[in-house]
């Protein structure tokens, strides 16, 4: 869980297909992301071992051909656990981003369209949510409503709302004064219709970039919550909890902590690169500076 470092400029019309493949960040990032997603999807059909069957006698094995990443403290195959864990991470992060977008974007657009009191109240509400340290609040929420994937999603999702509201509002505010909007208004279109038909398409790129970043943050947040035992619950594996369980066994089996950690790093790295790449492609001004 961390801070989005960049304030976004209004992007010009997207024309990224041309340059997409030549942008290094985008190419690497999308490859990694696709790979992780493929791994998660594959786990629905096939994993090397069935992780619901425990063979405690095989516990804490090192790396071998049979178990490329070794086995955990209950004798489960770590590669299989990581594959299924990817599912969990991705699902939690996607839904959390979905909540953030689903609630935040309409709010942001509404604030930008109406201005005045609505805008003021909404932004103060944003400040209020931002004033709560996100991780602490997520811990509170999961501790109150019980640990589990669903509550982790909600906890992470809530804190995505003001992020998207802010981005959508900023984006929308910069679109509103433009001429084609004025034309639409002159043609008698209502604010709602304009928001949906003209504003939204113009800020989609912005939201996409922010979405990628929040996705990556969501994966980190989920890992943190799981590490504290507040995320997905057994028998569903999660990367964060695998790290927690590995921690006590690091002197006997360091590989236990290695692979789930790497899985998180690689996934987050992939998404961040993808986000950077997208921004470069969508925001020509920044690209010029590279």
């Amino acid at each position: 869980m961390s801070i989005d470092p960049t304030l976004h400029e209004n992007p010009d019309e997207p024309h990224f297909l041309k340059t997409a493949l030549t942008d290094r960040s985008f190419a690497i990032g999308s490859c990694i992301t696709l790979l992780i997603a493929a791994m998660a999807l594959l786990s629905f059909l096939w994993t090397p071992y069935d992780i619901t069957v425990l063979t405690v006698a095989d516990k804490l094995q090192g790396l071998s051909l049979a178990h490329p990443f070794g086995t955990d403290h209950l004798g489960r195959d770590i590669l299989s656990m990581i594959m299924i864990g990817a599912r969990n991470s991705i699902a939690v992060a996607i839904v959390a981003v979905g909540i953030g977008m689903g609630v935040g974007v309409p709010l942001g657009c509404w604030a930008a369209a109406r201005g005045g009191l609505v805008d003021e109240v909404l932004m103060r509400f944003n400040d209020l949510v931002f004033a709560f340290p996100a991780l602490l609040s997520a811990i509170m929420i999961t501790a109150i409503f019980g640990p589990g994937a669903v509550n982790a999603i909600i906890a992470i999702g809530i804190f995505n709302v003001p992020v998207f509201a802010r981005v959508a509002r900023a984006g929308a505010l910069s679109v509103w004064p433009r001429e084609f909007i004025l034309a639409a208004r002159a043609a008698g279109k209502g604010k709602f219709l304009i928001s949906v038909e003209h504003i939204l398409p113009n800020i989609v790129a912005l939201l996409l970039v922010q979405g990628t970043i929040q996705f990556a943050l969501g994966i980190l947040a989920e890992a943190g919550l799981s590490y504290l035992g507040l995320g997905a619950q057994p028998p569903m594996p999660s990367w964060g909890r695998m790290l927690f369980e590995a921690q006590t066994r690091m002197i006997v089996a360091p590989h236990l902590a290695l692979f789930p950690g790497l899985a998180i790093v690689v996934t987050v790295l992939g998404l961040n690169l993808l986000g950077d790449g997208l921004r470069d492609l969508l925001d020509p001004r920044l690209r010029r500076e590279r």
């Binding site: 590490y227 964060g240 996934t267």
Partner: peptide, 9 residues
């Protein structure tokens, strides 16, 4: 890479 590393790991 640094941004992607979970601090507890």
């Amino acid at each position: 890479v640094g941004v992607a590393i979970p601090n507890f790991w």
